[in-house]
Simulated assay, not measured.
Amino acid sequence: MADKPYHHGNLRAALLTAAEAELTEAGVEGFSLRSVARRAGVSHAAPKHHFGDTAGLLTALAAEGFRAFVAAQTAREAQAGDGAAEKLMASGLGYVDFACARPALFRLIFTSRRIDESSDELVDAGSAAYMHLANGVMAMGGREGDIAAFWATAHGLAELMMSGRLAQIADLPEGERDAALGTILRRAMP
């Protein structure tokens, strides 16, 4: 049986999509380039050729994860009022939305030791995510400590929601859930 060719359409996007599916199913410990290639329907050499090694692919996936993370916050902000407080609240809700919708990717970007933290792409994407949050806090007149307080609160809520520790909030209808999370986030706002 001949190997599958690795050239098709947008290989990078196909590999990153397959990589997230593999990460979600197998976790970072069970993650393998061969499984990603199989999921993407390409030769086993394609991921290595494109990303170098497992760390290279996970790093690229983490950078994409940070961009998707900001997009989730921005999508929530687009539905909010025009005020800085409304935008920041929406950003915090988008933070939690992303974590609950894509927990494996959320954990990869924030806790994995299998990514190359010196990668320019990852540093740029992570910095943009931090600045998005920081700018929202600063728009309300906040300072560095306020950024840390809001970040810690949003991140803590995301972790608690993902782990099922806030079932009393998670099980509420969406509007009530957002209001309950918003009450907590508001306490950390400048």
Score class of each variant (00 low, 15 high):
residue 9 G to C: 04
residue 21 A to G: 01
residue 37 A to W: 00
residue 85 A to C: 09
residue 136 G to E: 14
residue 155 H to G: 06
residue 125 A to T: 06
residue 55 A to Y: 02
residue 12 R to W: 07
residue 165 R to I: 04
residue 33 L to T: 01
residue 20 E to N: 07
residue 107 R to S: 12
residue 58 L to F: 06
residue 100 C to N: 09
residue 20 E to W: 04
residue 63 A to C: 01
residue 55 A to P: 12
residue 159 E to N: 11
residue 188 A to I: 11
residue 89 M to N: 11
residue 56 G to R: 01
residue 72 A to M: 04
residue 105 L to N: 11
residue 120 D to R: 15
residue 115 I to R: 10
residue 138 M to L: 03
residue 39 R to I: 13
residue 182 G to F: 15
residue 142 G to N: 12
residue 176 E to Q: 15
residue 174 E to W: 05
residue 54 T to Y: 06
residue 134 A to F: 15
residue 20 E to I: 02
residue 42 V to N: 00
residue 145 G to W: 13
residue 70 V to Y: 01
residue 161 M to A: 01
residue 153 T to L: 06
residue 16 L to Y: 00
residue 163 S to E: 11
residue 146 D to E: 13
residue 97 D to R: 05
residue 49 H to E: 00
residue 98 F to V: 00
residue 121 E to H: 05
residue 168 Q to I: 15
residue 100 C to K: 03
residue 159 E to H: 05
residue 116 D to Q: 08
residue 22 E to F: 11
residue 135 N to W: 12
residue 178 D to A: 15
residue 60 A to K: 02
residue 168 Q to F: 09
residue 95 Y to M: 08
residue 152 A to C: 14
residue 71 A to T: 05
residue 138 M to R: 05
residue 118 S to D: 14
residue 7 H to K: 07
residue 144 E to D: 07
residue 186 R to L: 14
residue 190 P to I: 06
residue 113 R to Q: 07
residue 152 A to M: 12
residue 56 G to V: 07
residue 163 S to L: 14
residue 134 A to M: 09
residue 170 A to Q: 00
residue 75 A to C: 04
residue 84 A to W: 10
residue 28 V to P: 02
residue 185 L to R: 06
residue 148 A to P: 11
